[in-house]
Amino acid sequence: MGIKIGFICTGNSARSQIAEGFGKFYAEKFKKNIEIYSAGSNPSGHVHPVAIKVMAEKGIDISKNRSKSLEEIPLKDLDYVITLCGDAAETCPVIPDVDTQHWELPDPAKVEGTEDEKVEAFRKIRDEIEEKVKNLIDSIIV
């Protein structure tokens, strides 16, 4: 029986999808029996194309991922819930009776500016998420 981690956000289109991609990558790399999920309290219905692009730059394909609701993942079976909402206006869900961590990360999809500036915002968040996910997976004893 492995550990189950859920990365939860509002739309499940960018930050939680990036975290899911890195979670699966590092669980496999560190050879840990960890199942990774992501979902949103109000799923957007799509994975943000720039999230797919910046993850491809790291060699991780999330293009086949889809935006999922909380009902589509084994919420009650999760060992860890990581919420990734940053803006106070966002409504990060609270999951009772689970080891919950909140990573306050701004939504790169809300960045305005040139295409290059938007991509750079996604890269910055991607790199921050990668470091946090890598440390989390590395710290879990299974």
Rank of each mutant, 00 (worst) to 15 (best):
M1E: 11
G2C: 07
I3Y: 14
I3Q: 05
K4M: 15
I5E: 04
G6H: 09
F7C: 02
I8C: 03
I8N: 00
T10D: 03
G11R: 03
S13N: 02
S13Q: 00
S13R: 00
S13D: 01
A14K: 04
A14C: 15
R15F: 01
Q17E: 02
I18F: 01
A19F: 06
A19K: 09
G21W: 01
G21F: 05
F22S: 03
F22H: 02
A27E: 13
A27H: 04
E28H: 11
K31N: 15
K32N: 09
I34C: 08
E35K: 15
Y37I: 14
S38T: 13
P43H: 05
S44Y: 08
G45Y: 13
V50R: 11
K58Q: 11
G59H: 05
G59W: 02
I60T: 11
S63H: 04
S67G: 14
S67W: 13
S67R: 05
S69N: 14
L70N: 00
E72W: 05
P74R: 15
K76S: 11
K76N: 09
K76I: 06
V81M: 12
I82V: 15
I82D: 07
T83S: 11
T83Y: 07
L84P: 11
L84T: 08
L84K: 13
E90A: 12
P93A: 03
P93L: 01
V94G: 06
P96M: 03
D97I: 12
D97W: 15
D99F: 13
T100L: 11
T100P: 11
E104V: 15
L105R: 07
D107K: 05
K110I: 12
V111W: 03
E112S: 14
E112H: 10
T114R: 08
E120P: 05
A121I: 10
I137P: 00
I140Y: 06
I140T: 07
I140H: 07
I141R: 07
